[in-house]
């Protein structure tokens, strides 16, 4: 009897010590390291940097140039009315990096929320409804009445609120949820860009939105991933295509939580930058931009030479955890001659 027990005990111990082994893949796969070495494996590749799989639920490619101008109508006095419908939710689980699933809190289903765009003097009306399980609000940066500030008027689960204000001043602003604890509501993804264009318009340009953000997926008060438009390394494996000698206007918003400072570094050219986009005179001509939490800048630049150029946080911790991308600059003249 003792022997039987001993055998059973040892076999069950072996079960713990020698684990089950899955079937290995037959064909070896190859991936590249940072330094360009090709590594072969019979197993799986875990590489968010050189990711080649399917596009995740959220597509930073289309977000980049997607502006929401709202439903436009004209009031009796000639004012343009722009109406937006924004729904907040907090129950979505999204694949934020290949294989990593995180509970995002969203405006209209994405992180970041839609880029709301109006012209100076327009009446902006936001039909906000909260389909989440917690209170949420929309707090817009800019000039508006106190009761439209989205701070003291918490919108409870199932609640609705109409935010209404004139679009002012001209510039690049942002909106985010302002319910306590604000850090938690922002870190989960409740934010977006809000652009007010000057009445006379800006010079024609290829316009891009970069929301610099981070993801604290294990809730230890430190970001596990950094990115421009949420998905880490996205523009690294899907470079942003632009052309030489074409004005690029980048709307850069820093909504990073937990880290007090973020920055933006551009390779191969320099940019003029306009803090909050409120002035017509650039604050500087640089390839480095340091921004604190909630700060945003409009960047204007052109590329002289075609090729692949990186843009990333010069804080390399952030860039090596996802806040890195590339511009694929195509030769505009060459394209022109090809077409004709």
């Amino acid at each position: 009897m003792f022997m039987i027990l001993l055998i059973v005990a040892s076999i069950s111990t072996l079960y713990f010590v020698i684990p089950a082994v899955s079937d290995a893949a037959e064909e070896p796969k190859t991936f590249l390291t940072h330094t360009g070495l090709a590594i072969q494996t019979t197993g799986d590749i875990i590489d968010p940097i050189g990711y080649t799989g399917e596009i995740l639920e959220f597509d930073p490619e289309s977000y980049l140039r997607d502006f929401d101008y709202g439903t436009v109508s004209e009031l009796e006095d000639g004012t343009i009315l722009r109406e937006f419908t924004i729904t907040a939710r907090d129950d979505q689980v999204m694949e934020v990096s290949p294989g990593v699933f995180y509970n995002v809190w969203t405006f209209n289903g994405t992180v970041p929320g839609p880029t709301i765009r109006a012209t100076e003097g327009d009446l902006v009306r936001v039909h906000f409804s909260n389909e989440g399980s917690k209170s949420h609000t929309m707090h817009f940066h800019g000039i508006h009445k106190a009761e439209m500030d989205g701070v003291f008027e918490n919108v409870g689960p199932g609640g609705k609120f109409i935010y209404e204000f004139y679009a002012e001043p001209v510039g690049l602003h942002l909106y985010h949820c302002h319910v306590h604890p604000v850090e938690e509501h922002i870190a989960h993804g409740l934010y977006g860009a809000y652009i007010v264009d000057p009445k006379e318009g800006r010079v024609q340009a290829d316009e891009l939105v970069f929301i610099l953000n981070g993801l604290d997926t294990d809730f230890d008060g430190e970001n596990n991933f950094y990115g421009a438009n949420t998905v880490p390394f996205y523009y690294q494996h899907h470079p942003v295509e632009i052309s030489t000698n074409e004005l690029i206007r980048a709307y850069v918003v820093n909504i990073l939580e937990f880290d007090p400072v973020n920055n933006f570094h551009l390779h191969g050219t320099l940019f003029h930058h306009y803090p909050a986009g409120t002035d017509t005179v650039p604050a500087g001509f640089n390839d480095m931009l340091t921004m604190s939490q909630g700060e945003r800048e409009i960047l204007e630049f052109e590329y002289k030479y075609p090729g692949l150029y990186m843009f990333h946080a010069h804080n390399t911790e952030f860039s090596e955890k996802g806040w890195v991308g590339s511009f694929l600059v195509k030769d505009s003249e060459k394209n022109y001659s090809d077409e004709t």
Binding site: V21, S22, D23, A24, A25, K29, F31, L32, T33, H34, I39, T41, T42, G43, D44, I45, I46, D47, P48, I49, G50, F225, P232, F233, E320, K321, G322
Partner: peptide, 9 residues
């Protein structure tokens, strides 16, 4: 973050 392989899967 580093690119890596995991075997068997």
């Amino acid at each position: 973050i580093q690119p890596a392989a995991i075997e068997p899967d």
